[in-house]
């Protein structure tokens, strides 16, 4: 089943400028990890924001789990798309603790189910003992893991990650990369992530799409 299907997507920030994304089509299946690469300013982040519902396309269609979320007459707001996102700067709520941040998207669960899920996520990203800290009391790597746990907690059908490693130093990056693939595979998560680092691609992705040229180039992962 295709989790995301994008058909002839076009987007521009202002009507006077050139299209950031022009006639772009693409689809991905359940459980796939796909990297989006390309030069800066070629519309990688915009693609994620369009799928998330944070921007509205000029034309084209996006289906998520075979339901149309946006076309010329439909617009499903971001909170009803069932998509999770890890932001480049994490956007952890500064007024909430680690546990409260992770719990934030679990409002539909009962109280006991909620705390069980938080516990599970905290263990998954190895942050046990940090639950009552505030984001500013954490290191960059820890913040990144909280952001991941927060996005995964409501079990989204699709996880979007916007340059998730750009704020980490090289040593940390290597450690988290290998962890991440494991976490994502364990959670059977479908994931689309933006990067400009070839090492990210090699370590994580099943395949990549390259943006910035008129037609997105796809390449398969050689060894998995």
């Amino acid at each position: 089943m295709s989790i995301v299907a994008i058909n002839k997507l076009t987007f521009t920030y202002s009507s006077k400028k050139l299209c950031v994304i022009d006639d772009f089509s693409f689809s991905m299946n359940k459980g796939e990890i796909v990297g989006v690469v390309g030069e800066s300013g070629c519309g990688k982040s915009t693609l994620l924001r369009l799928i998330a519902g944070l921007e509205t396309p000029l034309s084209g269609k996006i289906d998520i789990s075979e339901v149309t979320v946006v076309d010329s007459r439909t617009f499903v707001p971001p909170e009803r798309r069932g998509v999770g996102m890890v932001f480049q700067d994490y956007a952890l709520f500064p007024h909430l603790t680690v546990a409260k941040n992770i719990e934030f998207g679990l409002h539909r669960l009962s109280r006991s189910a909620r705390s069980a899920r938080v516990k599970e996520m905290v263990e998954l990203v190895a942050l046990a003992g940090m639950e009552n800290r505030y984001p500013h009391e954490l290191s960059g790597g820890q913040q990144q893991r909280v952001a991941l746990a927060r996005a995964l907690a409501p079990k989204p059908t699709l996880l979007l990650m916007d340059e998730p490693f750009s704020n980490l130093d090289a040593a940390l990056k290597a450690a988290i990369r290998s962890e991440l693939r494991e976490i994502l595979k364990k959670a059977e998560m479908t994931c689309l992530f933006v990067t400009h680092d070839q090492q990210d691609v090699d370590a994580l992705c099943d395949r990549t799409i390259k943006m910035g040229e008129r037609i997105a180039v796809q390449s398969e992962r050689i060894s998995s």
Binding site: A52, G53, L54, P77, P78, E79, R80, G82, V83, G84, M85, F87, D89, A91, L92, F93, P94, H95, F104, G105, H107, R108, R150, A151, P154
Partner: peptide, 25 residues
Amino acid sequence: LKYMEASRMLGIGFTRTFFKVDLPL
């Protein structure tokens, strides 16, 4: 806008986001 966007990506609507995230900030 990032906190609001993060909140909406977690399934919280615009109005509830305002009370849970924007207002305290």
